[in-house]
């Protein structure tokens, strides 16, 4: 279980020229470890996450998810790979307003062609793991910001991914709840042996991470082990 980005370059059109968002980025994230990618706004953090999530195809370089090289894969194959191997924790919880907390997780089974009824037990276990066992039947508007973010994390783990990509999970939380969320992600990473990338501009919650990589102007500095 690992995530490997090798010499990944990504450019965007910028008028007549092209803007380099990622410049020959190489990053190895072993299973069971939490890597934080930090940097200021516009440095390329989100682009790195999007490439790792297979939502954008890099101009060059390779992205390998759990040993599977994604180079040349079609849209359908990438969607299936994302569904089965990659969990995404969005910056904002992005929960579906019509679904309860448990159903937010069950829908992951539905999109994978499995019965939502059979998936409910696992959904409840995961909600228990993030401390929301009693709130399984509440809808998003009945949850606090921190609780919604915990549902967001539990949803990302529902299909038992090998890679977990976490995008600015603390941006809408106060310091205490932000720290609790990062601690939760670190614990889940180790317990489930996922290769986790945590993108953040907030460096105050990095005590629980295994390595920190800084990105500036699209260039990733060698990750520093902690």
């Amino acid at each position: 279980m690992s995530l490997n980005l090798t010499d990944v370059t990504l450019t965007y059109p910028d008028g007549d020229a092209r803007l380099t968002a990622l410049d020959r980025v190489t990053l190895d994230v072993p299973g069971g470890t939490l890597t934080a990618v930090v940097g200021p706004s516009g440095s390329g953090k989100s682009s790195l996450l999007a490439v790792a999530a297979t939502l954008i195809t890099a101009d060059s370089g390779t992205v390998t998810v759990d040993g599977v090289d994604t180079t040349g894969m079609g849209r359908g194959e990438l969607t299936a790979l994302r569904r089965r191997k990659i969990g995404i924790v969005f910056q904002q919880p992005n929960l579906l307003p019509s679904l309860t907390a448990a159903e937010q997780l069950q829908v992951m089974a539905v999109i994978d062609g499995r019965s939502p009824g059979r998936a409910r037990a696992r959904a409840l276990d995961l909600l228990d793991a993030v401390g929301l066992a009693d709130l399984a039947d509440r809808r998003p508007h009945q949850l606090s910001g921190g609780q919604r973010q915990r549902v967001n994390i539990a949803r990302a783990l529902m299909n038992d991914p090998t890679v977990l990509l976490v995008d600015e999970p603390t941006s809408a939380l106060d310091h205490e709840r932000g720290a609790a969320v990062v601690d939760l992600i670190a614990r889940l990473t180790r317990r489930r042996a996922t290769a986790t990338v945590l993108v953040t501009h907030d460096t105050t919650h990095l005590t629980a991470v295994d390595q920190v990589a800084e990105v500036r102007d699209g260039v990733l500095r060698r990750p520093a082990r902690r």
């Binding site: 969607t79 992005n94 579906l96 999109i111 299909n159």
Partner: peptide, 16 residues
């Protein structure tokens, strides 16, 4: 469309 984008990002196929 926001919900649809989230579901697609999570791996839902267009057919589903």
């Amino acid at each position: 469309s926001g919900d649809v984008a989230v579901l697609k990002a999570l791996g839902a196929s267009t057919a589903v």
